[in-house]
Structures are given as structure tokens and as C-alpha cells.
Design a protein around this nucleic acid. Sequence first.
DNA 1: CTGATCCTTGCGACTGAGTCTCATTATATT
DNA 2: AATATAATGAGACTCAGTCGCAAGGATCAG
Lengths: 141, 141
Amino acid sequence: MTKEHDIFKSFLAEKRLKLTPQRRAILDTVFETHRHFDADELVEIIRHKEKRISRATVYRTLDLLVKAGLVTAMELGEARKVYEHVIGHKHHDHLICMKCGRAIEFDDGFIELLQQKVCDRLNFEAQTHSLRIFGRCESCR
Amino acid sequence: MTKEHDIFKSFLAEKRLKLTPQRRAILDTVFETHRHFDADELVEIIRHKEKRISRATVYRTLDLLVKAGLVTAMELGEARKVYEHVIGHKHHDHLICMKCGRAIEFDDGFIELLQQKVCDRLNFEAQTHSLRIFGRCESCR
DNA sequence: CTGATCCTTGCGACTGAGTCTCATTATATT
DNA sequence: AATATAATGAGACTCAGTCGCAAGGATCAG
Ligand SMILES: [Mn+2]
Ligand SMILES: [Mn+2]
Ligand SMILES: [Zn+2]
Ligand SMILES: [Zn+2]
């Protein structure tokens, strides 16, 4: 039993929700995928495993995974929301190339600290944040 | 003639585009509105002035104003994009209350500087950025 | 076992912000 | 004024995401 299974199971139990084969397939696939993906890509990956799944169930389950803290959702400038799993990937933000679309991950503890300072100063209780820098990547500039 | 008029006029001229009464009405209304607004709100405000305007024209002109650097567009977590004019409002980012929806503006030059450092380190040419901190505001926490 | 309760699923219909098409009208240029 | 080019409004269209609902499955009381 993986860590993410345990977390999802307790999350569901606490909310009186059930761990179904579909939810298990979604959880597994999300944690096998080590890149950003969108909901319909996830549907396709699961269907290639010969498993039946509906778009609605995938959307519904992704919401649950986000609420459980296992997945983050973000808008990287394209039309669709993209997702990535959390365990094994510490928090990071993105540089987004407006020419090729590439998303470069970065992490700067000092920026995060200063964000917290801003919140303290304004008496705001931060829960999450999203920092996106748009421009040209190394190979596109 | 206001500064924004001059800028928009040169922008249009340079691109061989035309200054129409509709574009003038949109520009004026955008600069009279000192808060975040969405495209359909703008349509309503202009129509209340007894001016005919179509949604398509408002969407198209807002894109031009963004390209001209006169307006910024952002997603504050709700469904619709919101806009605000630039002149007279220096750059800032937002704390967004997930309970009441309020957007609190802040500006931290140090954070901006560190963002530039990240870009330099990764050889990325920054054009714009969006930093949103989601949580609970003073009155909702 | 039987029935009541409650959750989940898949399907397809629906929503709604934003975009596009196109016939008509307006602006800029000469 | 004539010409070339761009802009407009109306409504059709797109498409990511949501919702309603009927059918199915687990759980539990009696
Ligand atoms: Mn990432
Ligand atoms: Mn603002
Ligand atoms: Zn690039
Ligand atoms: Zn609030």
C-alpha cells in the first residue's frame, strides 16, 4: 500500500465516501504520470489500460484528489487546467514560455518567505499561491 | 487629449488600425472605472451611457488595450477574466480571499527583484508575471 | 433474505465565457 | 470623391467543465 493510497483512503473514509475501482485507477495513473497532464489526457491513459472510465468521473475524482492534498491543479496559460501529483514533487512555481509553451519549474524559498511576510503584514491567512512568470525560454529567446 | 488616448492612437496607427467611436467609448470607460471589471460588465456600463456596443467589439478591443500595455487582464479565481487599467495604478499582485472573493492589492519590490534573479539564473526572458495568494482575508479568517 | 438508504457511475445534455463568420458600414488615404 | 482596408454587430459556434438522472452496488436494519 503506497502512501498516497493511505492518504486517499482516510480522506474518503472521513467524508463517508467510497474507494471504488475507478477512483483507484485514477489515483494510480495520476501517480504513475510524472509530468503535467490534463483531465482528458488522463481519461485516454486510463482507457489505454483497457479500463472503462467516464470524463465526469475523472473530473469528479481529480477534485477529490486536490481536496485531499494529493494533487495540484493549475492554469499554465493554455485553455485547459493541468494537474500534477504532490508526493515526491515538492512545491514549485513555473516559468512559462509563451513561444513553445514549455513550463520550467523553479523553487525559491526566499520568495516564499517574503510572500508570507506580505500576508502577515496584511493580516491575511495564506492557503495556497500561484506564481507564474511568462516570457521566453532559453531556446526561444 | 489624455495620455491613454495618445498611447492608444499611436498603437493603432503603428498597426494600421483605426480609431472608431466604439474603441474610444471602451477606452474612456475603462479609464473611468477604478476597480476590476469583466468584459460583460464593461458592455453594460457602456450601454447605460446610451451607446450601442457589441460583446465581440468589447472583447476585441480589450485584447488591443492589453497589447498596447494600457490594460492588464487577470484570472482572480472566478470564472471570468477581469481587467484593470494601468496608468495611475502601478504594478501589483493580489491576495485573494476564498471566502468573500475580495482581492487585496500588494506590491513588494523585493519579491519582484528575486523573480528577476530566478529568470536570470535560468536564462529566461520575463515579460509578465502573475502572483496570486489564495486564503482568508482579515475579516473572514 | 428483503427492503431502505446512500453513494457512485456513465451517458449525454447542458452551460457559459470567449471566439468566429460574414454581410454591412465606417475610416483612412490618395 | 474614390478606393482600399478595417471594424462592427448579430448570432452561430466552440469546448472545457458541470449537471441530471437512471441504473448499479455497497451497507445495514429488521
Ligand atoms: Mn510543475
Ligand atoms: Mn488589481
Ligand atoms: Zn520556449
Ligand atoms: Zn474575505
